[in-house]
């Protein structure tokens, strides 16, 4: 049994200290240029400052460098990685092999977390990236709890799993919402299609299932209709020796993320110190989150207990 790190993605710089005070052990941040689906976009200066504030308080900072890069973005990558190493980022999160290769060339001291989102599925693949220098596997959100623990048991590197929040279910390089506005005769350039507009899609045959969607410099992103919530299921992560559990702040308010972090902190501490007491209180923790949960974001347990059918029949 092991006490997992509680990792939270940060929506805005002002939230850094409140999140640390709420109990985060580690923070996830990113600059839109190289970071995909950051809970909020930080400038490089804000990342530097976050690292400083966090380190003063014994908290780690992982920086998203997880985009799929095109040639022209490689030019400035060297300097960016050198900079992150110099300011003491505790790790960078990568999804494109070019980032790993560049880090090995110019910023050997940077710890690498492998995260290809839906592609980070098996321990063989995790071990492959470990052999290339990755120190952590950020697992796909589509795995069952058994697969998650099996991956932990069969890799030498750390394993991170998401326990709360929205998950990305689709990324296109195309600006699909703008294209739709254009098709409807709207001025594509004038329409706000960013995260803050909070748009969502509803499939025509399904009622009350809404998938958030936004566009940014990396294209179009679509998210799960529900927020994962494992606050009453932390025992599996703790007994399964998962190294880091993540609260994804994306698409939520600062107040919500801070409140959820507090609840998870308490739940996790109790789970580790007194499992029986945790089981007794698990439903209460869930109720606390339900009480602040936005109505259009139902909670569920993702794929942890419900794998999709792998093949067509």
């Amino acid at each position: 049994m092991k006490k997992p790190e509680l990792l939270v993605s940060v929506r805005r710089f002002e939230d850094v200290i409140p999140l640390i005070e709420a109990g985060a052990d580690a923070l996830s941040v990113g600059d839109e240029r190289y970071g995909l689906r950051n809970a909020g976009n930080f400038t490089v200066e804000q990342i530097d400052e976050t690292i400083k504030l966090a380190h003063e308080r014994g908290v780690k900072v992982y920086v998203n460098v997880n985009s799929l890069l095109h040639n022209e973005e490689l030019d400035a990558l060297d300097d960016y990685l050198k900079h992150l190493e110099q300011v003491g980022a505790d790790a960078i999160v990568f999804g494109d092999p070019s980032v790993l290769a560049t880090a090995k060339d110019v910023a050997l001291g940077l710890k690498l977390h492998w995260s290809m989102e839906m592609l980070s599925t098996s321990f063989d693949t995790a071990n492959y990236w470990a052999s290339k220098g990755a120190k952590r596997a950020v697992l796909a959100r589509e795995l069952t709890i058994d697969e998650t623990i099996e991956n932990r048991d069969n890799t030498e590197i750390e394993v991170e799993a998401q326990v709360h929040g929205a998950t990305c279910i689709f990324q296109s390089r195309r600006d699909l919402v703008s294209a739709y506005f254009g098709h409807q005769g709207k001025d594509m350039e004038a329409e706000d299609t960013g995260m803050e507009r909070s748009m969502f899609l509803k499939e025509e045959k399904r009622r009350n299932i809404t998938y958030p969607v936004y566009e940014d410099a990396h294209g179009t992103h679509i998210f799960s209709a529900e927020d994962i919530c494992m606050v009453d299921g932390l025992a599996d992560f703790v007994t399964g020796n998962i190294d880091s559990i993540k609260i994804e702040g994306l698409l939520h308010t600062s107040e919500y993320i801070i409140a959820v972090t507090k609840i998870y902190r308490e739940a996790l501490d109790l789970c580790v110190s007194d499992m029986d007491a945790y089981y007794d209180k698990a439903a209460d923790f869930l109720a606390e989150i339900e009480a602040i949960q936005p109505k259009n974001r139902p909670l569920n347990t993702g794929f942890y207990y419900k794998p999709p059918i792998p093949y067509m029949t």
Partner: peptide, 16 residues
């Protein structure tokens, strides 16, 4: 989508 970077089917049709 970027090929592979899409799990719409997993969510909408329970197929991987």
């Amino acid at each position: 989508a970027y090929s592979g970077r899409c799990v719409l089917s997993n969510h909408m049709a329970m197929r991987d």
